[in-house]
């Protein structure tokens, strides 16, 4: 039936249309098809590149850090809450956050490691410094439509701000409130603009993209501790490698697994099975003499507001 229909159609039109009309129509058709074919050309190289697996954006292309015998390091953080008093004794805003902001030029109002004050049973409070939890089953990575946020072999979660489209579904997906958006041109000091961008070192900031704690793997590889670990006045934060089972706060070296199990370590929202790489040892600053009934901490400040020209400040 269809074939017959086709034959009918094919034979009838020439009788109805004049030769000139067919020519004009044919010409228009060729022109239209040419235009249609030319339109995608500008993006073709990018499509081909993407198809070949190469990415035109800056990824964390540094080779993963390895132990002496060649195993890939698995970065971890252990935060000993017995030693965290929210910097009450220092009389300053939390120094882990301050050091992180200084080191990363983290734009206002982003606290990549934020010190939350949580209620304890009873009236008292505890302070919980909270970086990105570096989940091994990361909800943010699962939902990203363009693989702008991704897990690395070292077990960290990074964001490629050159690929991020700013849809913010990762922010909806993160159960720890650890993702921040560049709603505008964030205030950063002028020198930040000179930095070489990498997903492991998110400077300079890019408007309309998501940012968060990157766990400083570049610093760890170079043999230094992350800014927050360095900044803590009470050495409450340990950073290390689960593969070699070692962690340090800068003055003491511990065997990570033993340290965790002997001190009843836990992870935030363990029941969500996100498998964070950040562990907590329960406490409320008692080891540095904090009374849990002394509430409050000082507010974080960003040092370069005056020097950031044209920036628009917003609140979280």
């Amino acid at each position: 039936m269809n074939e017959k229909d086709g034959n009918q159609q094919r034979t009838s039109p020439p009788n109805q249309t004049s030769g000139g009309k067919v020519n004009r129509r044919g010409l228009l058709r060729v022109l239209g098809l040419t235009a249609f074919g030319l339109v995608p050309l500008p993006v073709l190289p990018r499509v081909l590149q993407a198809a070949r697996g190469g990415a035109p954006t800056t990824r964390a292309d540094a080779a993963a850090a390895r132990t002496v015998d060649g195993r890939i390091r698995q970065w971890t953080m252990i935060i000993d809450l017995r030693y965290c008093d929210g910097c009450q004794s220092v009389g300053k805003p939390p120094q882990c956050t301050a050091a992180c902001i200084e080191g990363h030029f983290a734009p206002e109002p982003m606290e990549w490691i934020q010190v939350f004050e949580a209620e304890l049973p009873g009236e008292g409070t505890q302070f919980i410094p909270t970086p990105c939890q570096q989940c091994q089953n990361p909800p943010c990575v699962n939902v990203c439509p363009v693989a702008a946020t991704f897990s690395t072999p070292e077990g960290t979660v990074l964001i490629d701000q050159n690929r991020c489209i700013g849809c913010r579904i990762c922010m909806a997906a993160c159960p720890y409130d650890r993702r921040f958006f560049n709603w505008g041109t964030a205030p950063t000091p002028p020198e930040a603009r000179l930095a070489d961008y990498s997903a492991e070192h998110q400077v300079p900031v890019k408007k309309g993209t998501v940012m968060k704690c990157d766990f400083c793997p570049d610093m760890a590889r170079a043999g230094t501790l992350p800014y927050c670990v360095q900044g803590c006045p009470h050495d409450a934060i340990y950073y290390g490698d689960l593969e070699e089972d070692i962690a340090t706060n800068g003055s003491v070296i511990v065997a990570a697994s033993r340290f965790l199990s002997q001190n009843q370590a836990y992870r935030l929202k363990e029941d969500l099975k996100t498998k964070p790489r950040v562990y907590y040892i329960p406490g409320h600053g008692e080891a540095v003499g904090r009374d849990p009934f002394t509430k409050g901490r000082q507010t974080t400040t960003w040092p370069w507001i005056e020097r950031a020209k044209g920036a628009r400040v917003w609140k979280r």
């Binding site: 990018r46 993407a50 690929r163």
Partner: peptide, 9 residues
């Protein structure tokens, strides 16, 4: 270019 079918978006 980089769509991942694992993403609800």
């Amino acid at each position: 270019l980089y769509g991942r079918w694992q993403s609800p978006i």
